[in-house]
Amino acid sequence: MSPPSAATTTADAVVVPPGVTAGVAVFDRQAGQLTDVLNPDLQFRSASVVKLLIVLDYLWERGPAYDIPAADRARLEVMLRSSDDAAASYYWDHLGGAQIIDRMVERLGLTHTDGPPTTHPGFWGYAAFTAGDTVRIYRYLLDRAPAPVRSFVMGNLHQATRYGTDGFDQYFGIASVFDPAFSIKQGWSGFTSPTAKTKVAGVDLTSEALHTTGTVGTDDRTIVVVYTLHPNGTSYGKAYTDVTRLTRTLNVPGGVKSPGSWLTTSGSGVRVRSAPNTSGGVLGTLPAAVDVLVGCQKKGQLIETPTRSSDWWAYLPKYGGYVTNVYVGSGGPKLPGVPDCQ
């Protein structure tokens, strides 16, 4: 596959938060060109983005009927929708490990993708990917793959769950910024056991990595790929916020940004509830100190802490629920500039 033409090729077009290393490629399928690009050939450890190649390799040999046994279908669906690691490990072992990468590199014409280092043969998340090659993977899926393959893979990416099976909130980046039409295959690595930086063949294997990839807009108009590495010891909430802030600066044709005000939360384990009170069902838990999109605010149960109190609750449209204003923003009980919910 020939490289796409680029309308914008300067790093100035992408705003990268301080301390973050990023590789970015945004491809407008309608115009046939890149709208933003930064370090497109810089290799990052793929984390869970490699699951795209795992599922494509599995489907490649299924034949024209593409019959997927029920057990495999269930396993692949949870791997794509909820980034299940056990499923990825199962197919990595059964399909030949790094041979998956070798086969897919040749089939898709990838130019800067490698399997994990020989020192870590079972670590599928250590496969080296680039933003440029990830655009090529999505272009194959959307423009060249047989219809059953495209329907299965993209259909599941459009139904990605908010939380992975490991409990991590995967609605950062693309999923936080755009509404309503998007698909995602996210990746995260290094947040549970940060260690000193190690590089193998130029690929950083241990710095905290957080990647958002997928499509935005009607008919998957624009492919968005953002790979990032963060300073050692960065919290998940901080990386989540930095990736989302970077994604908000991108030129994404066809993308509709969700309306509202971006505010930073405080506290850890803050719960999002179905109603503005502690009797409302828990819809999710926020990563610590993360940017959230607030659509409006509503009066509800008074919440008091040693330093703050409020009977106003912020409505988070991306969660479909409420968080007490005690843990949103840094001002008084009511959020300035945020409208009341009607």
Rank of each mutant, 00 (worst) to 15 (best):
Ser83Cys: 11
Ser83Ala: 10
Asp84Met: 13
Asp84Gln: 10
Asp84Ile: 12
Asp85Pro: 13
Ala86Gln: 15
Ala86Phe: 13
Ala87Trp: 09
Ala88Pro: 11
Ala88Ser: 15
Ala88Trp: 14
Ser89Ala: 14
Tyr90Gly: 09
Tyr90Ser: 14
Tyr91Ile: 10
Trp92Asp: 13
Trp92Cys: 07
Trp92His: 12
Trp92Ala: 11
Asp93Ala: 15
His94Gln: 14
His94Ser: 14
Leu95His: 04
Leu95Ile: 11
Gly96Gln: 06
Gly96Val: 09
Ala98Pro: 03
Ala98Phe: 02
Ile101Ser: 09
Asp102Val: 13
Arg103Tyr: 05
Met104Val: 05
Glu106Leu: 13
Glu106Asp: 15
Glu106Thr: 14
Arg107Asp: 07
Leu108Arg: 01
Leu108His: 06
Leu108Ser: 06
Gly109Ile: 00
Leu110Asp: 04
Thr111Ala: 12
Thr111Leu: 09
His112Gly: 10
Thr113Leu: 11
Thr113Gln: 12
Gly115Cys: 09
Pro116Ser: 13
Pro116Thr: 01
Pro116Ala: 13
Pro117Asn: 03
Pro117Thr: 07
Pro117Arg: 08
Thr118Met: 08
Thr118Arg: 10
Thr118Ser: 14
Thr119Lys: 12
Thr119Gln: 12
His120Pro: 05
His120Asp: 09
His120Tyr: 07
His120Arg: 08
His120Leu: 15
Pro121Val: 14
Pro121Phe: 07
Phe123His: 11
Phe123Trp: 11
Trp124Glu: 09
Trp124Arg: 11
Trp124Met: 13
Gly125Ser: 09
Tyr126Trp: 13
Tyr126Ala: 09
Tyr126Arg: 04
Ala127Leu: 04
Ala127His: 00
Ala128Asn: 06
Ala128Trp: 01
Phe129Cys: 00
Phe129Thr: 05
Phe129Ile: 15
Thr130Ser: 08
Ala131Lys: 02
Asp133Leu: 05
Asp133Ala: 07
Ile137Tyr: 02
Ile137Asn: 03
Ile137Phe: 02
Tyr138Gln: 08
Arg139Trp: 01
Leu141Val: 02
Leu142Trp: 07
Leu142His: 06
Asp143Val: 00
Asp143Trp: 01
Asp143Ile: 04
Arg144Leu: 10
Arg144Asp: 13
Ala145Glu: 02
Ala145Tyr: 00
Ala145Thr: 00
